[in-house]
Amino acid sequence: MDQFIDVLDRNKSYVPMLILLNKVDLVDEAYLEEMKKQLPEFIPISADKKLNIDNLKETIFENLNLVRVYLKPQGRKADMNDPLVIKKGSTVIDACDKLHKEFVKNFRHAKIWGTSVKFPGQKVGPDHVLEDEDVLRIILKK
């Protein structure tokens, strides 16, 4: 009820959060099971032993609503180590805008490899919505 009143009064804002339980390597399994009953959505980790850190990273990435887009320069392979990170729902022209203003101005079309297209190397326009781990090649006007 208090949260409902806060929303109407607009005097507080609520932000998403993650609950982490660190040092899980020092507790027994029974304690973890008890914690799961009390806090069903916590993430157990051990920073020292690096337990469950990859799951934590993936959860943070998903909660931030981001996607990774790999860029493929003409005549070369895509750089799969250094993605362009953009908001989920971003279009090809949004990605161009992140890279350089000239890319927006001189955009002709793009080619995409990934889950957002029907076949690899599909030619798309500026309004095509990119998905996580798509490979993008931007074709500019000469």
Rank of each mutant, 00 (worst) to 15 (best):
73 P>L: 03
90 S>Q: 01
113 W>L: 09
36 K>W: 13
37 K>Y: 08
41 E>H: 10
15 V>D: 03
15 V>I: 08
92 V>T: 11
7 V>T: 04
18 L>E: 00
35 M>G: 02
26 L>Y: 00
11 N>A: 01
14 Y>Q: 03
128 H>P: 05
120 P>K: 15
32 L>Q: 02
100 H>S: 13
116 S>I: 15
4 F>T: 07
8 L>F: 03
139 I>Y: 08
116 S>T: 14
65 N>M: 12
130 L>C: 06
100 H>T: 10
79 D>R: 13
13 S>L: 06
52 N>Y: 13
25 D>N: 14
62 E>H: 08
57 K>S: 13
135 V>A: 04
29 E>F: 14
70 Y>H: 09
128 H>A: 10
98 K>M: 11
46 S>C: 11
50 K>F: 09
47 A>N: 13
102 E>P: 15
133 E>Q: 09
2 D>A: 05
19 I>R: 06
108 R>G: 01
131 E>N: 00
23 K>T: 01
43 I>K: 01
38 Q>P: 00
75 G>M: 15
49 K>N: 05
118 K>N: 13
106 N>R: 13
68 R>W: 12
61 F>A: 07
74 Q>Y: 12
140 L>E: 00
114 G>I: 12
87 K>R: 15
10 R>E: 08
108 R>F: 04
120 P>G: 03
92 V>S: 07
106 N>D: 01
50 K>D: 00
24 V>I: 15
94 D>T: 05
120 P>F: 14
72 K>Y: 12
90 S>T: 02
5 I>P: 02
140 L>Y: 05
137 R>E: 13
